[in-house]
């Protein structure tokens, strides 16, 4: 019978509370349990393979279970659909990646994740950037002359410069966020312009218990940028801060 993997947790000093894993029910409504090896625990649920369907409903349910686990343990969340064929396979995995698991668990210890998405009006924002570019433009060495290839390259250079200007603009906001949140010294990851409407997508790994301070800080950043729309969510398990290759 296969086993769905939910998370990796550290068992050191938590042997007694691990028993309570059985109170947590997995996506197939059977009790979760832990397989321990050298201070690490893989949280599993026995599942029927045929019923492990990849759909939104199951993925949300899976996330809720990880959320519940995160209320009790520091953990490395697994990706939905990670299935171990046997308990021994889970032990082998714990052994094989022990160093990486331990390092990552240390990184997320007593921390939680927040997400900040900054939206903008792409049309308006890019128009302003284009205007600034026109004002500060350095000469493009190719002029759109008679030759088709020269005109082609001219357009490519313009597009390249515009793309760089957009990223620079997003980087300025990232830098501002970085400086403003420095006081909490969180781990931060940014995605600049992941889509046209999303200027910056940031995730923070932050010490637990600082939620209200964090909200205040983001409110302060928000006030300085009334044109942007902000969405701050959390706390989440550290989904974006598990780096295992």
């Amino acid at each position: 019978m296969p086993y769905m993997l939910y998370a990796i947790i550290a068992s050191a000093g938590k042997e007694e509370s691990l028993v309570s894993l059985s109170a947590i029910h997995g996506i197939q409504n059977t009790s979760a349990f832990g397989v321990s090896h050298n201070g690490l625990v893989a949280v599993l649920e026995e599942v029927n393979h045929a019923r492990v369907v990849v759909n939104t409903e199951n993925a949300i349910q899976y996330a809720k279970i990880i959320e519940e686990l995160h209320q009790h343990y520091d953990l490395l969340p697994a990706r939905y659909g990670t299935v171990m064929e046997t308990k021994d396979a889970a032990v082998c995995m714990l052994e094989k990646y022990r160093k990486e698991f331990e390092e990552n668990l240390q990184r997320v210890e007593n921390k939680e994740e927040f997400s900040l998405k900054v939206f903008w009006d792409y049309e308006k924002g890019s128009e302003e950037i284009r205007k600034k570019m026109a004002h500060n433009a350095t000469e493009v060495r190719i002029s759109p002359g008679e030759k088709e290839s020269a005109a082609y390259l001219f357009e490519k250079i313009k597009a390249y410069r515009f793309e760089n200007a957009l990223l620079e603009y997003a980087e300025q906001l990232c830098e501002e966020i970085r400086l403003a949140t420095e006081v909490f010294s969180p781990d931060i990851k940014f995605k600049k312009m992941p889509s046209q409407s999303l200027l910056v997508d940031a995730v923070f790994l932050q010490k637990k218990g600082l939620k209200q301070d964090f909200i205040q800080l983001v409110s302060w950043i928000k006030e300085r940028h009334e044109d942007f729309r902000f969405l701050l969510t959390g706390p989440w398990p550290p989904y974006n801060f598990v780096d295992i290759n």
Binding site: S195, S197, F214, K222, L231
Partner: peptide, 19 residues
Amino acid sequence: ILLSTGDTDELLRDMEKPG
């Protein structure tokens, strides 16, 4: 959702909108 400016549903739709 800890802080949201504007209509949250609209923000979520924008988030899902492919770029």
